[in-house]
Design a protein around this nucleic acid. Structure first.
Lengths: 214, 214
DNA sequence: AACTGGTTTAACTGTTTGGTTAAATATATA
DNA sequence: TATATATTTAACCAAACAGTTAAACCAGTT
C-alpha cells in the first residue's frame, strides 16, 4: 500500500539474499527438498537463476542456508526465554508456544516433519548442534522440574518427542484436517478451528498434567 | 538361506503386484512422492518399467495404491481392537501401540509425516475416509472415557494430534537422533535406544496422565 | 500346428531439472 | 574518463525423469 511498485503478487523488484531465503523456505516447506524447483525459486524472487547460483550456491547450499536460518532463529528465541522465565511449568508452556510462533510457523514445522520422515537425508551437519540445543533446552527444564520435586522423573527425550511431535504435527495439519472434516458429520471436533498458540498451550497442558507430580 | 535363488540383495525373481507395492511403499516412505523414482521401483521389483505401468498405472496410481493399502491395514487393526478391548485406558494404550506396529512401522509414519507436511498435496481422496476412521476410533474412546467419568473433557482431536504426532514423530526420528546424539555428552537421554512399542507406551502413559480425572 | 488374448520387454520420446557459460552490464577505483 | 572488478543475464547443456510404443513372448484353446 506504500509506493506503487511495493508489492503486487510476489516480490516485485529483485530480491535481496534474505528475501531469496524467505522464498526458498516457503518452497522447501511446501514441496520438500526434492519437490522444490530452483527455477521457480529464482522466478519468485525475480532474480535470474544464474544470479541465485552466483549469490547463494547450488540447491544443497540454498537448503543449508534456509535450515541454518530457521533453526538459528528458533534456538535463539528458546534460549532467550530460558534466561528470563523461571517457573518450570511456565517454561514448558512458553517452549511450546515458541515452537509454533515466528514469521511462518507452518514452514518450520513442515521442514522439521519432512526431515524426520526422510531420516535427515538432506540435513546438513551444521544444523545438528542447533537441534541439540533445542533438545537441551527442554531437557534442562525437565531436569530442573524433577530437582524441584514438581515433575515426575521422566525420559526427557521422550517428552521432547511428544511435545515437538505434537506441536509440529498440529501446526501443519490444517489442510488435511479440513478435507477430512468435510466428510465428517456436523459438530465433529475436526471442524473446530483452533489457533496455533491455543493448540500449543492445550498440548503443553496435557503433557504437563502427564509429568506433574501429583 | 533356502534355495540358492531365494534372496540375494533385493527381490530376485519378478515381483508380484503385492511385492511391487511393498517396494513402492519403501521408496515413497524413504524419499517422498517427488523423490521416489519409477525406474528405481521397477528395477528393485525386478520388473520392466512398462510392466509396472501395465500392471498398476502411473505414479499417482501407484501412490494411491500404496496409501490405500497401508491405511486400510491400519484402520482394520484399530477397529478390530476397538471391538475387543473394553477398558478406555487400555484402548488408548493399544491404540498407540498399533500406530507403531505392523510390518514396517517407520514407513507408515514417514508417509504420514510427509503428507501432513505437504498439506496432503498428493493425498488421494480415497484415503480421507480411512483417516477419518482413525480419528473416529480415538474420539469414540475418549468420549466413552468422559462418559464413564474417568477422563476430563478434552478436545478429542487435539489429543489425537498429540498421540499420533508424538508416535509417528518418534517412530521416524531414529537416524537424526543418533546423529545429534553423537555430538552430545555421554549419558545423554538421546543415547538411550528405546524400542518403538516401549516408546509408544510411554507416550500413551504421559497423555493418559494428562486426560485422566484425578 | 495355428490362432488368440493377455503380458513382458528394449528402445524410445518429450519434457523438466539442476547447473553452467560467456557475454553484457553495472559499480567502483585510479 | 579509462580501467578493473563485481554482478547480472539469456542462452545453453547433459542428465534424469515419467510415460509410451511396437514388437516379442507366453499360455491356453481349437
Amino acid at each position: 500500500m506504500n509506493s506503487l511498485s511495493s508489492r503486487r503478487e510476489k516480490t516485485p523488484a529483485k530480491a535481496s539474499n534474505d528475501e531469496i531465503l524467505d522464498i526458498a523456505t516457503r518452497a522447501f516447506a511446501a514441496k520438500g527438498f526434492e519437490g522444490a524447483r530452483m527455477d521457480e525459486i529464482a522466478k519468485d524472487a525475480n532474480v535470474n537463476k544464474a544470479t541465485l547460483y552466483y549469490r547463494i550456491g547450488d540447491k544443497d547450499a540454498l537448503y543449508e542456508a534456509v535450515l541454518k536460518r530457521i533453526f538459528t532463529a528458533k534456538v535463539k528465541r528458546l534460549e532467550q526465554m530460558l534466561a528470563t522465565v523461571d517457573d518450570v511449568e511456565e517454561r514448558i508452556r512458553v517452549f511450546a508456544s515458541i515452537l509454533v510462533d515466528g514469521d511462518q510457523p507452518q514452514q518450520f514445522s513442515a521442514i522439521m516433519l519432512r526431515e524426520i520422515a526422510g531420516g535427515g537425508d538432506n540435513l546438513p551437519d551444521d544444523v545438528l548442534p542447533l537441534m541439540g540445543r533445542i533438545v537441551g533446552a527442554l531437557r534442562q527444564t525437565l531436569e530442573q522440574g524433577v530437582k524441584e520435586g514438581r515433575f515426575r522423573p521422566v525420559n526427557p527425550f521422550l517428552v521432547h518427542m511428544a511435545l515437538v511431535g505434537a506441536c509440529t504435527f498440529y501446526a501443519s495439519n490444517g489442510p488435511i484436517r479440513r478435507r477430512v472434516a468435510a466428510l465428517a458429520p456436523d459438530g465433529s471436533a475436526l471442524k473446530t478451528e483452533m489457533t496455533l498458540p491455543d493448540a500449543a498451550q492445550a498440548i503443553a497442558d496435557v503433557l504437563l498434567n502427564g509429568v506433574r507430580k501429583s
